[in-house]
């Protein structure tokens, strides 16, 4: 039960981080925290049921998560290289700026 509470807490922390952080790396960390929370929960429940299946599943799930995270990191790198920022707000403003520039060009 404690594990469940812990994982819930981790989940909350992860979401909090996602909501408040602007730096993509911090966002990534928050994502990882969420993934960790899920895995923790899985472990907790798997241990209740017993058997090896749960662990196998967990490993697969973790690997999937890792893959996705890796892709995100790749994108973050691209973003930093191409656009020069990893601030998510700046990124979205960048988009708006570009849109504004497009509009301006038309006029």
């Amino acid at each position: 039960m404690d594990y469940v509470i812990l994982s819930m807490t981790l989940l909350a922390v992860g979401i909090y981080g996602l909501v408040t952080k602007r730096n993509l790396l911090k966002v990534l960390i928050s994502i990882e925290i969420i993934a960790a929370a899920a895995s923790m929960n899985f472990v907790a429940f798997a241990s209740m049921v017993g058997g090896s299946l749960g662990q196998a599943f967990l490993i697969l799930a973790l690997s999937v998560d890792t893959t996705l995270t890796a892709i995100i990191i790749a994108l973050v790198v691209v973003a930093y290289r191409d656009l020069g920022t990893i601030d998510i707000w700046a990124l979205s403003r960048l988009r708006e700026v570009r849109a504004a520039r497009r509009r301006g060009k038309r006029r």
Partner: peptide, 23 residues
């Protein structure tokens, strides 16, 4: 962000489609 004030973010402009909003 401001209430928790981990670091003060001065946000007054409206941003569309920011990830935090999605979450």
């Amino acid at each position: 962000a401001e209430a928790i004030a981990v670091h003060s973010v001065k946000v007054r402009r409206v941003h569309r489609g920011v990830l935090s909003h999605f979450v």
